[in-house]
Amino acid sequence: MADQAAVSHTEHVAETPPPRKRRLPLPTAALSPLALLILWEIAARLGWIEVQFFPAPTTIAETFWQMTRTSQFWSDIGISLSRMAVGFTMGAVPGLLVGLAMGLFRPARSVFQPLIAAIYPLPKIALLPLILLIFGLGEMSKYVIVAIGVFFLMAINSMAGVMNVPAIYFDVARNLKASRWKMYFTVALPGALPGIFTGLRICVGTALLLLVAAEFVGANEGIGYRVWWAWSVFWVKTMYVGFAVIALLGFALTYAVEYLERRFLPWQGR
């Protein structure tokens, strides 16, 4: 598609398509993390750093490898992922609907915006004790803390998405006599999708953070629990494996959202 576009342009008008979002090629992007790991390895081996706290990367990798062969490792990941999925859905769907309503209708905005403005700055993690109190130590408290974090981000970003759709597109629809509902579905919603995807991308990080924190204190399985437990028994390498798994999950989920965005919004030209 891209090549085709470039070719057709030259024969038509001397104007280049807008510049693409530049990504570092993977080998270049991997250089500095790799250098850091090597430095860390050398420092650990030469005793420059305390291996009790900073075990050499190769020894962590070995622990990682051994852990992947236990069923507990996979069930921890599975349980954390399913908690995230449920909590994410519970927060994102209402957040999206409330956000779209706020963007489209002034009455909805005047009802919800002050509430959201008041609650949003509160770090959601501070609510955890209350949520544990209400929902107990079971699964529901994990769902709820993730859902709350996701809800606000989705509501705010979907609202901004709708409100940032340039007025000219509504003018076009109105002039062509589009009905109210047609206008929502052919202008407001597609125009808001980039904002909605921005919301989803930010939500991945927040959801992971809240889940891990909730699992620290109120769970007996899951990745967060495993890291906390490793601390309490001083299995430092297991703790590092936990960090790595959390980072990889965050990376993979963010990538998945970006993939979906490119797939469903090809018109952004990314």
Partner: peptide
């Protein structure tokens, strides 16, 4: 309009068809 007013989320063909389809 003077400003760019074609819908970025529609292809050229769907933009051209918009007025008929939306009504």
């Amino acid at each position: 309009f003077q400003q760019e007013s074609v819908f970025p989320w529609l292809t050229v063909e769907k933009n051209a068809a918009y007025g008929l389809q939306v009504t």
